[in-house]
Nucleic acid binder design. Sequence first.
RNA 1: GGAAGCUUAGCUCAGUUGGUUUAGAGCGCUUGCCUUACAAGCAAGAGGUCACUGGUUCGACCCCAGUAGUUUCCACCA
Length: 894
Amino acid sequence: MEISSRYNPSEIEGKWYEHWMEKKYFHSTPDEREPYTIVIPPPNVTGVLHMGHMMNNTIQDILIRRARMQGKNACWVPGTDHASIATEAKVVNKLAQQGIKKTDLSRDEFLKHAWDWTHEHGGIILKQLRKLGCSCDWERTSFTMDEIRSKSVIRVFCDLYNKGLIYRGVRMVNWDPKALTALSDEEVVFKEEHSKLYYLRYYVYDDDLKGANGDENEVIHTDSQGRRYAVVATTRPETIMGDTAMCINPNDKKNQWLRGKKVVVPLVGRVVPVIEDEYVDIEFGTGCLKVTPAHDVNDYMLGEKHNLQSINIFNDDATISEAAGMYVGMTREDVRKQIIIDLQAANLLEKVEDYNNKVGYSERTNVPIEPKLSMQWFLKMEHLAKIALEPVEKGEIKFFPPKYVNLYRHWLENIKDWCISRQLWWGHQIPAYYLPEGGFVVAENTEEALRLAKEKTKNDNLTINDLRQDSDCLDTWFSSWLWPMSLFNGILEPDNAEFKYYYPTNDLITAPDIIFFWVARMIMAGEEYKGQMPFRNVYFTGIVRDKLGRKMSKSLGNSPDPIELIEKYGADGVRMGMLLTAPAGNDLPFDDALCEQGRNFCNKIWNALRLVKGWNVDDKQPQPNAAKAAVKWFDERFNQVLTETNDNIDKYRLSDALMSIYKLIWDDFCSWYLEMVKTPMGQSTDKATFDATITFFENLMKLLHPFMPFITEEIWHFINERKDGDDIIIAQQNKAKNVDRHILDSFAFTQDVINSIRKTRAEKNISNKEAVTLVVVDKDGSVSREFDDVIKKLCNVSEISYVNESPKNAFGFLVRTTEFFIPMSEKVDKTAERKKLEDELNYARNFLKGVEAKLSNDKFVNGAPAAIVEKERKKKADAEAKIVVLEAQLKSLE
RNA sequence: GGAAGCUUAGCUCAGUUGGUUUAGAGCGCUUGCCUUACAAGCAAGAGGUCACUGGUUCGACCCCAGUAGUUUCCACCA
C-alpha cells in the first residue's frame, strides 16, 4: 500500500479518540494502583474554548497520559462552572433581544430560560476539548450546579453559618450597576484613566467674615461681591447631591478659617458642616474634601466617624434617584456633562485640570463600579486565611514557579471578609429564610428551616409559606472552592471510598490570575473540611499573548480560533505549538508558526515510518557493522534522553522535555540512526537491524505519546501487529537504565569526524556523489575504529587508512588531537590551508594561555577543589597536544 | 505609593549548590543540494561587551550593592 508523504491528521484523530472512548481508557475507578488525580479548572458552562484553555488542558493531558503510562490509576475529572454573573448576563441579553425584560419574569421563569440556555450551549467547550485529545474521564463530568455540587454548597454555607463564620450586614460594597449585583473585591479591576479634576466653589454659609484674621498662611477665596468660599477638587462632580459635609485637615494652616463653619453645596444649596479629620491630605487639591458617605468608601468611613447623614443619590442601575432631588433619572455620565455646564453657568466652577486616576471596573460587565451601601452576606476570612497559609509555607503544597508563594502570602495576610452574596438568580440560592416577625434561620432545606423557625419563634403554627427565602444567590467561587472535594462527593459523604482514594489530588494546572479567586480558597476549603490540602502541586501557566505581546482578547481580534488551528495543523501539531510557547510561568507569546513546527514534526515522524515500512526484511542476511554500531549507540542515546525527559517532567519543565524528545527523534533517530542503518534502494534489511529499529520506533512513540497522542497511536498500530487492547495509550513507559558514557562519547567523536568531512566537502566543493578516501594519523594505534563503517556510509568514503605520517597534498582537519586527511588528486591551495591552521593555532594558544594563567596562580591551585584543578591540567595537556599537532601540520605545508 | 519578577544571538527562551561554558537550544537568516522516507526536506555556515556601574572571590552569566529599562501584583488619596 502506498503511504502518503504527507501526514494527514484529520483522517486519524477522530478514529483514535473514538477507539479510546470505546475501550474506556479514560475511565478510572479506585483499585490497588497508586492514584494520580487532576481536577479540571471548570470552564464557564456556556463558554467556548480559547487559547488559555488550550494551553492549560494540553498540560493537564500530558501529565495524565504520562501517569497512565507509568502504571498509575490516572483520573482527570472534567466539568463546567455555572459562572453566575457571566451566564446570567448572557441570558438577560438574549431575552432582551426577544423583547423580554428580566424584571418582567418570575425567578422560576427566568431560571427556566437560563437552564435552556445552559443545555443549548453547555458542554460545547467540553466537546472541543475532545478534539484536542484530552483524556478526561467523561463519565465523571460534573457541573457546579448539579445535585451533588449544589447540596455540597448549601451544606457548607449552613456549616460556616453555624460556626459563626458567615454573617449578614450593611457594608459598603462594590456595586455593578449593569449586572445589578454586589461584587467581591477580587472582581473589581482598576484601570488608569485620563480624567479631569474639577474645582468647585463651596460658599461659606451665613458668612460673618470672622476668621479672616490676617494670618498669612490662610488661603481665602472671595468672589467679585466679596463673598467667601472654599474650593473643593473632585473627579466626580455628579455626586455633589450626596454631599453631607466638607472635610479639612485640622493641621492645615491655609484652611483654618473654615473651622466650625458651614458651607453651601454648589447648585444643590444644601448647607453642610465643615468637619475636621487627619485623613485629608493637605497637599492634595485645596485640602478641602467633599464628603459623600453613600458613594465613596473613604467618605463612608468619615461619615461613620462623624455621624453624617448618608444620601443615596443613585438608583441600582446608577441613574440618579429621587433622593438626589435634581437630574433625576439621568445616567451618571450624562449628569457629569450637564452638571459641569450648570456649574459653569452659575459661576461655581473655579477651574478644571487634567488628571490621571484609577477607576474600578466590573471584571465581568466592564462598567465602572459604584461603591454602594447595602445589606450583604459575608464570610469571615481570618481563620480560613490562617489555615490556608500553613501548607504552602511548609511546602506541603508546592507552587511552580515558586515566586507565587510571596504573592499568596501577602494576600492572605491582608485579607478582608469575602462578600459572598450576589443579587442574581442564576446560582445557588442562599439558604436563609426570613421570619414573618423579623429575623431569619439558616437551614439546608425547607423542612429544617421550618423546624428551626418554629423553635426560634416558639410558634408551632408557622407554615412553610410564612417563610421567605433570601432571594440572593452565592458568588460562583463559593461553589468552585469546593470543587476538588465535591467532585468526589467529599462534602456530603466524607467517608466514601472514592474521596478517600482520589483526594488529595496531585496537580492543579491553572492561570495565576485566579490564585486568589480559586486556588487560595480551595486550599481553605480543603483544610477546613478535610483537614488536608486539595492538591500537592500547583502549576501556574502564563497568560497567552499574541506575538506582539498583547493579551489575546475578543475586542482586539487577535485570538486564533483553536478549532481552526486544530483543523489546519492537527491536534498534535497545535499541542506541540502550545508547549513550544510555554517555557516557564511567564507570559506565553503565541505564534501560528509554532504550530507549523509541530505539524512539520508530525510529518517528519510520518516519513520515518514510511521509510521503515518500505524495508524488505531478509532473515538470512547478516547485520552490517555500521548497523550494529548504530543500534548499540542509539540504544544508549535513547536511554540518556529518557532519563533527561523524566527529570524535566518531574520538574514540570514540559517544554524542555518535549524539546529533548524532538531532537532525539529528528536529529538522533532520523538524521543519524536511520541514515546509518538504511540500505540502498533495492537491497533488503537484515532482521536484527529491522527488529531493533521497530523497537526503537516504538519506544520513541511511547516517550512522545503524552505530548502528541494521535500520531503516536497511529504509528504504534502501523508499525507492528497489535492484539486487541494493545494500544499505546495504556502501554508502559520504559524504565531508565544507567547510561554507558563510553559509547556515547565514542560516537560523539565519530560525529565530529563526519561533520568535518562534510564541512570539507562543502568548503572545497566536493560533490557527495564523488567518493573520497580518508587518512587517519594514528601513531600508537589508539584511535577507535568502532564506527569506521558508519563514516564510510554517511560520507561516501571509499576507504579509511591509518598511517604514521601526514600525507602530502591533502585537506586536513583535526578532531580533538587526531589528524585526518582527505587526499586530493589536484593541487591543494597551500595558502588557504595554512590560513585555516593558523587560525586554529591562534585559538588554541590563547586558550592555553588562559589555562596556564589559572594554573600558575597559587591561590587557585591551593584554593580550588582538587577535581577542578585536575580538569584544568587536562585542558592544558589537551591544548598542548593540539598545538604540537597543528604546528607539525603547518610545517608540512611549507 | 508599596512589593516582587525579568533584562543572555534577529525572535522566543535554557543556563539546575560560582570552575568541562573565551556561553547553549529552537525558530529565523545565509550558502549549497529536487542524494529513490521527508523541499512541511537534506547538508554546511554566520550570528552574543550575558542591560549598565561598582564590589566580593584564585575564579562571576551565576553571589552582593547601586543605576536604567520592562512586566506583574497589591493599595481608599478625592
